[in-house]
Design a protein around this nucleic acid. Sequence first.
DNA 1: CTCAATTTGTTCGTATGTATG
DNA 2: ACATACATACGAACAAATTGA
Lengths: 281, 281
Amino acid sequence: MKLLANATMSELSRAYDRSRVPLYIQVASVMRRRIETEQWRPGTKIPTLVELEREFQVARVTVRQAVDILREEGLLRAQQGRGTFAADKAADRHWFKLATTWDALIETIKNNVRKPIKVHNAPRFPTLRDGEGDPADKYVFLRSVQYKDAMPYGIVNLHLASTIYNRAPNVFREHPALPVVAGWKNIEIQHAHQTVVIGSADPTSSDLLGIALGAPTAECRCVLIDRDNIAIYVADITYRSDAIQLHIDLLRRKRASGGDGVGAGSAKGAGRSRRRSRLQS
Amino acid sequence: MKLLANATMSELSRAYDRSRVPLYIQVASVMRRRIETEQWRPGTKIPTLVELEREFQVARVTVRQAVDILREEGLLRAQQGRGTFAADKAADRHWFKLATTWDALIETIKNNVRKPIKVHNAPRFPTLRDGEGDPADKYVFLRSVQYKDAMPYGIVNLHLASTIYNRAPNVFREHPALPVVAGWKNIEIQHAHQTVVIGSADPTSSDLLGIALGAPTAECRCVLIDRDNIAIYVADITYRSDAIQLHIDLLRRKRASGGDGVGAGSAKGAGRSRRRSRLQS
DNA sequence: CTCAATTTGTTCGTATGTATG
DNA sequence: ACATACATACGAACAAATTGA
């Protein structure tokens, strides 16, 4: 135990040199993580101020500042004379399962609670990389914010080929685009993929999602390419990092229905997946 | 353009209230992002200090501090009288493609450059969640760091069931475990999955990966469950967030598995996009 | 070559925030 | 709570390098 404490503090001070973020925020980050990972169990007493001072090698006031931050966040309750306690129930983070299959994606999007956002300075074209097909002649740009319980967790920036959009402008203004496109029999999708990287919130995202500037985000790009190799649907989606998770079933049964079987929906029960015949060429 | 600047700055100040991170670091974050996304093209002149002051609504000195950070990082060059310029070539980030299939995962791991780390205070058991099977009677804990060009990008914390480990202790000490286990015919894997969430660096990770405390990370958990529903392999892997990406083919064709696009290394050349229009956000 | 405009670099004074003991 | 030291942020003025007329 002593060993652990010593190791931790030397690592902290070294880490502090590397980071320019104020010390009490760093300490708060470490403590927040311990609460969220339930390393400090919900409802239980956390180490005393003196112990924390020693572990982090910081002054008492600095620990207190960190504690104050977490109190404001509702993760800690401090009680004079008794101690400081972790919140009773950890907030359910990572509740949103990013889709890893076509069917799951469609299903997910259907259930979206979204609000369209007006965009003034829309880029005319998406920036397409290798393997993302050729640009269409013209695109329509749509932006919307996704909500759960009035809490925004994602921003969708969509370039939709005008040829697609013009088939049903009113529908696209009201509903998520992907299920609509997917439902059309006469559109043949040659390729569809999704790419995820970790980014950080720019001013716009930070404002729309209510997170700090520079806070980590998941940046998903979803591209649909038609049989003429035209990128008809290019969505850049920015998620709050604490809202999402990604679950991949590594052993998808090959024997299940011609190898095309799609397992692993987004929810626990999973199992049931509808066939995807219409998109097959 | 004027509108954009105004919108950005009000958002920045609002965002600033939300975050306690020093202003010049926040400004640096936004600028870093612009360079990395090539919104500020490599080698070209970025806006003048005066323009940046106006856009971010901060004092000159604050902009300068932000510029200084990025100069140290090699992302900007400043020249008195001329201007400030973005670095010539953006670093290749997100080069490591996280595997999304079993075969790709095995292949990826085979190519790992890794260094085992001695662990003193190893947890005896992994904490298993719903759907992650039952714990084995006993585990061995192994930790290693993954490198690319002497740059650490991932930390593997592995709980390996002792029954597995004891079959070939020396092999497991020298080689990545997964390909070894996968190669054994007499082990039947009933279930294997990988979960990815975004986390932040604790003191240990921050030290081993050389990133700031609290910097975003990708936390991958990979679990193998045998036919008796025992979790024989439980790996918690922490990656630098800027090293990794995840690519999912949504329309998985039967034949496509050969070149599933999920390989270990090297981002292919450049990928200049033919049309560039910044996704303003 | 000089001049003026532009742009980065530096300094001062002041106020507030951060961290220690 | 206090005294101390240093970091952060502002505004403004000034200095130095570059460019083009």
